[in-house]
Design a protein around this nucleic acid. Structure first.
Length: 802
DNA sequence: GGTATGACCGCT
DNA sequence: GCGGTCATACCT
């Protein structure tokens, strides 16, 4: 038998299957989707078996070295999905497959040299290198010609051997388990009365009453106060037996989850649930758009739909934007489905993520809740896929493979005959338009479950505040309302939108702004280190004391950070207890969750934060939401800016008044009349959508046109431009006349890491040949891109335009 | 991505 | 004629 293997080398030349012979000893293990190690040239590398066939066209093939897992890591479905992704997103097959498995088992080959003879027989140079070790890492070798020569010599004389190891990056954890030896009764005779502790432990084991019961050694040490020596004694006497058992790391080990029984559904909820369960029970794919206002109880609909699917013996995938942002979501899922839930998320350690993935892979978990990549959960019988907050930009992966989780979800839904539910209070215009054309089925939940009104929204014109002489970040209105909540003992959220509003450095005297020497972008000021940093290449420099251009001392940083707001807040409301949540305060693992818990327990009056507090928080005591600068991202050069602003304002507003108390929202803005802000104020999604659709139609943007962005960059500006022109003219020739090809134009960021960037935008409605042409272009420039001189990136549904 | 290979160059 | 460097082809 022969295996067609996709090797772990992401280049154009190796983007195809290589044939290997399957040795008889591995025939049982080698299956499509198995991870394998194979010889490749002089090396040993990792790969995936793609297909198994009984013949090969090659005269001589090498055998597979090893199969790495007892069960294939990729299912037949995922193998096929990878092929689809590679074509649709223009990436290598191996890149698609690697993105489907946890980082812990992604290939990371190591080159080592192994000593075959005793040290003394080596030349002195190598003796010094090896010292007392028998194997050393290749990268630890001194970069020295003489040493290298000796190494080659020694390899020829078979004194040392070069060894390629392909190891997982994280080990499976094992637990030491102890149980009674099958013949413990016969051996028990050797226990004398002198071994008091051993007798005690033996008796304890007998008292369990189950001869087969295995107990973790750790438990014996803690709860039975048995010492290591006591256990060892019984093992040596063949009374106890020990064995290492693979175990899962449990990221929620020290947490218990309160059971959350199914709630009675409102009429809206029931009307949303019925069409979904109608499809799940018939195992039919269908895409639903669940449009429910904030607080309308979408999660309960998800939970009950999942429950039906589990009863059918099928599995469910739930995507959430970033789960650490919504610990409450995890609680509700764990509370309803307990251990059947696997949480897959970036805040977990690599080992924990691996183990949650393994629980899904082994069939021990039936519901996968996680961020974008959880869409690849290796289930075999998916019955339902849910994407919560479907409008979120984070469902699009911004590096290879540049997939959108929504499209992957629909692909898997069709494969399994499983419905896909897209849920949001503010659906993306793309999805809403598809629902309008009945490509998706629209389910509406226009009312909150508690019959509460949506919070009243007050838009404050900050220009007026300035005229009144108020130079603080808080308007009078907001400050008054904050004081009011403080007196009543109610809670407030203050939201500072920082996107497109970072702190930059400018000289007040000559207008100089600090820029990165490698990228055409302003440097960002970091208060913690008092440094200037480039967000694109990582370049850092110290904050200058005087202006490098005119030597004036009037060089200052601008922009408002949460830290500054906090300082000001403590000045005007000294008695308020404040929790600040941003990138700086939530870096430590679990700190995020802990802060939210403290806020939930009423240990603070005001929660101040950035994007991360905009979504999913559900605390009954929040009655006031303040948005400090609503329009910071309104004026970014991005056609989605108004949509993002509307979504964000609606989401944050939705945090207020979710329980018995009525909520209120204050939005501070310098452009209060902008339609995004006005429609958000009136909770009027349909009108916003209609208005924005008009704008998109005029501009030729999605959902009227699809977009694809091709970006070309090179160290030499001439080569970059020339190549971009060639690519553009080729697209003009080969696409239909209906397609609009814009460019090439200079990128909004004209230079990154010393490379000049040009881009070409394709606007189109129906171009079945497009992906083929783009793949051809990628192959055509393969040589240049392989040499790392020319970069061509192709992004099928770009979210960002920088 | 890493390695073997052969062309090319400068020095003997 | 030879060692060193560099671009390039190839890997089953």
């Amino acid at each position: 038998m022969y295996a067609k293997v996709i090797v772990d080398i992401a280049t154009g030349q190796t983007n195809r299957a290589f044939d290997y012979q399957i040795p008889a000893s591995l025939e049982m293990l080698a299956r499509p989707g198995s991870r394998v190690t194979v010889p490749f040239g002089a090396r040993k590398i990792q790969g995936f078996i793609w297909r198994i066939e009984d013949k090969t066209e090659l005269a001589r093939v090498k055998p597979i070295t090893d199969v790495l897992d007892p069960h294939p890591v990729l299912t037949q479905e995922l193998l096929e999905l990878g092929e689809y992704l590679a074509v649709e997103t223009v990436c290598f097959l191996i890149t698609a497959y690697q993105s489907m498995i946890p980082a812990a088992i992604r290939a990371k080959p190591k080159k080592k040299i192994e000593l075959l003879v005793s040290t003394e027989t080596l030349p002195p140079v190598l003796q010094a290198v090896f010292q007392k070790q028998t194997t050393i890492d290749w990268k630890d070798l001194p970069d020295d010609k003489a040493v290298m020569q000796h190494v080659q010599e020694a390899v020829r004389h078979e004194q040392i051997r070069i060894d390629y190891q392909v190891k997982d990056q994280t080990k499976k954890q094992t637990k030491r388990m102890l149980k009674l030896h099958p013949e413990h009764r016969t051996h028990a005779a050797s226990l004398t009365a002198k071994a008091k502790k051993q007798l005690e432990l033996y008796d304890w084991f007998l008292s369990i009453g189950d001869e087969e019961a295995a107990v973790p050694a750790a438990q014996l040490l803690h709860e039975q106060t048995a010492s290591r020596a006591v256990i060892q004694g019984l093992v040596e006497k063949n009374i106890l037996m020990e064995r290492n058992q693979e175990s899962y790391r449990d990221p929620f080990e020290d947490r218990s989850f309160e059971a959350t029984p199914p709630q009675e559904l409102t009429r809206d909820q029931q009307r949303a649930l019925d069409p979904i369960t109608e499809k799940t029970s018939r195992e039919k794919h269908h895409t639903f758009l669940l449009h429910g206002v904030t607080g309308s109880g979408k999660t309960e609909v998800y939970l009950q739909a999942i429950d039906r699917v589990l009863q059918q013996g099928r599995e469910a995938i739930v995507l959430v934007p970033e789960i650490s942002l919504t610990p409450q979501m995890v609680e509700r899922f764990k509370g309803r489905f307990g251990d059947q839930v696997a949480v897959m998320h970036s805040a977990l350690s690599r080992g924990e993520r691996y183990d949650e993935w393994r629980r899904v892979h082994a069939g021990d978990a039936k519901v996968a809740v996680g961020a974008r990549s959880a869409i690849f959960a290796p289930f075999k019988n998916v019955g339902l896929i849910i994407i919560d907050e479907e409008h979120e930009g984070s469902y699009k992966q911004e590096d290879h493979p540049r997939y959108h989780a929504r499209e992957v979800a629909i692909w898997r839904g069709i494969y399994h005959g499983a419905p896909v539910v897209l849920g949001s209070a503010t659906p993306s215009l793309e999805s809403y338009a598809r629902a309008g054309r009945e490509v998706y089925q629209l389910l509406e939940m226009p009312e909150r479950i508690n019959q509460k009104q949506l919070p009243a929204i007050d838009v404050v014109d900050m220009r007026d505040e300035l005229h009144k002489g108020n130079r603080s970040v808080f308007s009078e209105t907001l400050l008054e309302k904050l004081k009011d909540r403080l007196e009543k003992g109610e809670q407030s959220i203050l939201f500072l939108n920082r996107r497109g509003y970072s702190s930059f450095v400018m000289c007040r005297s000559c207008g100089y702004t600090a820029e990165c020497p490698h990228c055409e972008i302003t440097l960002t000021y970091h208060q913690t280190k008092h440094q200037l940093k480039c967000h694109y290449c990582g370049y850092e420099e110290a904050m200058p004391a005087t202006c490098p251009s005119c030597e004036s001392e009037q060089i200052r940083y601008f922009g408002t950070g949460t830290q500054k707001v906090e300082e000001e807040l403590t000045k005007v409301l000294p008695e308020a207890r404040i929790i600040r949540m941003d990138m700086d305060t939530t870096t430590k693992k679990g700190s995020h969750e802990q802060m939210l818990r403290r806020f939930g327990n009423g240990e603070a009056d005001i929660l101040l934060g950035t994007q991360m507090i905009a979504k999913g928080l559900d605390f009954p005591m929040i009655t006031l939401v303040g948005v400090l600068a609503a329009d910071t991202m309104l004026h970014l050069p991005d056609f989605r800016a108004p949509e993002r602003t509307f979504q964000l304002l609606t989401q944050v507003s939705g945090r207020a008044g979710r329980d018995k108390l009525q909520g209120e929202v204050v939005i501070q803005s310098y452009s209060p009349d902008h339609y995004s802000i006005q429609f958000a104020k009136n909770h009027d999604y349909p009108s916003f959508s209609r208005h924005e659709m008009g704008q998109r139609k005029r501009g030729g943007y999605p959902p009227y046109y699809y977009l694809t962005m091709v970006n070309v960059s090179h160290e030499e500006i001439g080569v970059a431009l020339k190549t971009a022109e060639k690519v553009t003219s080729r697209l003009r020739e080969e696409l239909s006349p209906q397609a609009k090809i814009l460019g090439p134009t200079v990128s909004p960021i004209a230079r990154i890491k010393d490379r000049y960037r040009y881009q070409c935008m394709i606007k189109y409605r129906d171009e079945p040949e497009l992906t083929k042409i783009l793949n051809d272009i990628a192959v055509h420039y393969q040589k240049e891109t392989a040499q790392d001189k020319l970069f061509i990136t192709i992004d099928m549904y770009p979210q960002l335009f920088l």
